[in-house]
Design a protein around this nucleic acid. Structure first.
Lengths: 173, 173
DNA sequence: GTATATTAACTAGAGCTTTGATGAAAATTT
DNA sequence: AAATTTTCATCAAAGCTCTAGTTAATATAC
């Protein structure tokens, strides 16, 4: 990926970022390099706002949680699969997955059955109701996400995607 | 912010992103524009990994939670303040803040006292133990965050910061 | 001055998260 | 074949999240 180097000039964060930077220097001393910390700070701020938006406007109106949505979407992605596979794919624990599956099962959106090959294993499947629910929630979420993306230009969005892919794919230096 | 337009060429995501994109098209049809959705998908993936890293390597070894850390850091940032002010600044509910403050108080990291001016109001303050704890955790978190930032070049990190500031400061189009 | 409305903090209940423990089944070792 | 280890799923307990509702105190309206 290449950037126009002239673009790499410092710009200003908002008042809140400035206050947080002050606190960081108060904790680590005025000489400390806090760039990565402020980057992480703003990253969490932005993602928390997006997450909240999706929960308020896509998940909750449809009566499901973010975790429930991600599990249903994952089953849709990979097909009928086991709780442990879901946990691995979603970077969460099997215990959390088990708990969320309990709720989804209670609502009738997924079913559990025993694997004939390996009876330790459980196979989780979307029901018809679950599939229909997922379609509605997914459409609502996509709409909110598009609204967020509209804060950036097309080029900026592509850059953003590049940077995220780099974060996900590159090993730490 | 300006970008080198030649950099705005599509690159490839990982196998997992490709699978998710397939599922998205299965839900919305092959014509659907799922760019924003995939951007959001990768954003959550990256942030979840970072969050997990910080919890595992900075917060938990020091015996506190991410919420506890963010509250302590906020008190350090703005000084003694009320639960409702903390909730506003952290974009969370007063109920969550109250719950996290209960734990922090139990551990002796913060104190609550009544405001003389308005006795509905509570003033939350860091104890000496809380301040010392915060310094240690903050240093550990900063170290992990720097490691993450090292996955990107200096220019890329600056770009990343620009994009986050744009997301936080610009109104939806 | 009394009644209503608003505000601050908290609790209650449901859900998801974690680590750690448990039980059962499969794989491995001896 | 028998004993050990590993794997899978689940539960338990502690903590944070939310919405909704409560209590107490302040502000405003009549």
């Amino acid at each position: 990926m290449t950037f126009d180097e002239s673009a790499a000039r410092p710009t200003r964060g908002d008042a809140f970022e400035a206050t947080a930077a002050e606190a960081a220097h108060a904790l680590l001393g005025p000489e400390a390099d806090i760039f990565a910390t402020m980057l992480s700070f703003n990253l969490f701020r932005a993602v928390n706002q997006l997450q909240r938006d999706l929960e308020t406007n896509a998940y909750r109106p449809n009566g499901i949680s973010a975790a429930a949505f991600s599990i249903m979407f994952m089953i849709k992605t990979v097909g009928p699969t086991s709780p442990s596979k879901l946990a691995t794919l979603l970077s969460t624990s099997t215990a959390s997955t088990s708990s969320a599956l309990n709720t989804l099962e209670k609502y009738g959106y997924i079913t559990r059955r025993s694997d004939a090959e390996d009876s330790r294993r459980v196979i989780v499947e979307l029901t018809t109701a679950g599939d229909e629910k997922l379609i509605g929630v997914f459409a609502a979420a996509t709409e909110r996400e598009s609204l967020w993306a509209s804060r950036l230009t097309g080029t900026e969005n592509v850059m953003f995607m590049e940077l995220l892919r780099a974060l996900l794919q590159r090993r730490p230096a």
